[in-house]
Design a protein around this nucleic acid. Structure first.
Length: 490
RNA sequence: GGUCCUGUGGCCGAGCGGCUAGGCAGAGCUCUGCAAAAGCUCGUACAGCGGUUCGAAUCCGCUCGGGACCUCCA
């Protein structure tokens, strides 16, 4: 069975066979959040997807070092001279210390990541914690002649860089064309060339976040931290760099330029970009005001929402679309995902109830191979889910005696579900089984009573019992053996 | 304006030269005291117009619609 993995590489614009630089080790870097506000669902999609990348590589047996940074300084609202640091701005707004802002929104971010069942990264470095590395990197770029100083700020010299290396390869930008469209904005700038970007900004007297440097007090540019931290923890060259599509330019393009200027070679073998989550066809973003916060979605506490959805349903919903497609967020789609998720999970949980046969015409190994093929084809989770519904069909068929499965096949199906549903896609069963133990014992008695009533053909009382539970959101379902029950929230 | 992506059945969403995607919703059947669940079967599809091809949802051209990026963004 082939477990080859093909990854769509934004740099080559091709699905490339994944071959790690130093197997079995894999370096994975993902641009994390700027912690100046609560992460919204669009952000979560990216982190959830790269969690699946991390999980699948790990499942394949790679030793993955997953680095995802926290941007806690340097993310300025524009690179012009009046640019404001997002963290500093929010600190003034909320009348808190910048580090209080950082802590507050980092906490929320971590809580959301946990609730969505994302694995923690191996290393979660912060920009403020790597000031020395960033300053050292600037020195190297200066030494190589690809940066210059103006009034205590250091800018990356795109023209000097372009004379030696290609610039704009990742995003397909043409500097001349960019210039055509930006020259009007290029006013009283201290940069030599419009496309130059800040590596270090001198801090104005009122600027709160500031660090000493060889060029005076200031703060690092946004793009620099990722270059410095990925180099520190993953080396000058590493395997996979991920992030949202909107980071391709200028952020990732600048990263490539910084690393290349510093080390003479491009840093990343496979660039991966996940597409946007949209609302009514438009990108979900904080600035457009159409973003959902995770807790609003769970509680259904938002004008555009009819009801709440559990984190697991949301995760399943995200997995039903390919990461390179935009995904539109709607009540209908979420409702459909909820139903699908519940069907999937109830089949998963009922594998033990299947009675094995001695013979079977089902080909479970082929099913497993198709699961690997789906994931191997650029992490195609929608196809994987379609294959897992084939497993659902087999399990349900077996449960009501229409499909013969051997004991080995049932175990195999359980393994496949465990691997792909739980380990790879990071889904979880709706509720912990421990909570079910006592209610189950009680419900067994209820079903015994109903059975007696039905045998006496006292259907009215039997229905009364069922209705009484239904009023309390507990749905009773009769089966041949007795009954099943579920919570059904409204 | 530039660069790029995209338009699939009632809805979501894969596929991207020939072979059923899948889910949700809908119809019929089986099972069932009824119901629910589950299984089986079914329906209608590839924006429009041309072209290439034995064959196009898939490739090419044009038209129309939607979106992203072009120094805030996951």
């Amino acid at each position: 069975m082939s477990k080859d993995l093909y990854i769509y590489n934004s740099l080559s614009r091709n699905k490339d066979l994944f071959q790690p630089l130093n197997a079995p080790f894999v370096g994975l870097y993902v641009c994390g959040p700027t912690v100046y506000a609560n992460v919204h669902l669009g952000n979560c999609r990216t982190f959830m997807f790269f969690d699946v990348v991390y999980r699948y590589l790990t499942h394949l047996g790679y030793k993955v070092r997953y680095v995802r940074n926290i941007t806690d300084v340097g993310h300025i609202t524009s690179t012009f001279d009046d640019g404001v640091d997002r963290i500093g701005q929010q600190a003034r707004l909320e009348q808190l210390e910048p580090m209080e802002i950082v802590q507050k929104y980092t906490n929320y971010f971590h809580e959301v990541m946990r609730v969505f069942n994302n694995h923690s990264p191996s290393i979660e470095p912060t920009a403020t914690g790597h000031m020395i590395e960033q300053i050292e990197m600037i020195k190297k770029i200066l030494d190589q002649g690809f940066a210059y100083e103006v009034n205590g700020s250091i800018y990356f010299d795109v023209q000097a860089y372009r004379a030696k290396y290609p610039y704009g390869e990742l995003s397909g930008r043409n500097v001349e064309e960019l210039y055509e469209n930006t020259r009007t904005l290029d006013g009283q700038d201290e940069k030599k060339f419009f496309a130059d970007f800040a590596l270090w900004k001198a801090a104005s007297p009122e600027h709160i976040m500031r660090w000493p440097s060889p060029w005076g007090e200031g703060f690092p540019g946004w793009h620099l931290e990722c270059s410095a931290m990925s180099t520190k923890y993953l080396g000058e060259q590493f395997d996979i760099h991920g992030g949202g599509m909107d980071l391709k330019f200028p952020h990732h393009e600048s990263e490539i330029a910084q690393n290349t200027a510093c080390c003479g070679k491009g840093p990343v073998k496979y660039w991966m970009h996940s597409n946007m989550l949209t609302v009514n066809g438009q990108k979900m973003s904080k600035s457009l005001g159409n973003s959902f916060l995770p807790h609003e979605l769970f509680a259904g506490d938002h004008p555009l929402l009819e009801k709440g959805y559990t984190p697991q349903v949301v995760r399943f919903f995200m997995m039903q679309a390919h990461y390179r497609s935009t995904l539109d967020f709607s009540n209908d789609a979420l409702n459909a995902a909820e139903k699908a998720y519940e069907r999937m999970m109830s089949a998963y949980e009922s594998i033990e109830q299947c009675k094995p046969s001695t013979e079977s015409d089902a080909d479970i190994s082929a099913l497993e191979a198709r699961c690997y093929a789906a994931m191997g084809d650029d992490f195609n989770t929608p196809i994987l889910i379609a294959e897992l519904f084939e497993a659902v069909r087999l399990i349900n068929g077996c449960k009501n005696g229409q499909q013969a499965l051997t004991a080995e096949q049932l175990t195999h199906l359980k393994t496949i579900m465990d691997h792909f549903l739980m380990d790879v896609m990071g889904l979880q069963a709706p509720e912990a089984s421990a909570d079910h133990e006592l209610p189950n014992v009680m419900m067994d008695a209820v079903f015994a009573v109903r059975k007696g009533l039905k045998e006496r053909k006292d259907y009215a009382t039997a229905d009364l019992l069922r209705d009484a539970f239904a009023e309390r959101n507990i749905v009773l379902k009769d089966t041949k053996e007795g009954g099943e029950w579920t919570y059904e929230k409204k």
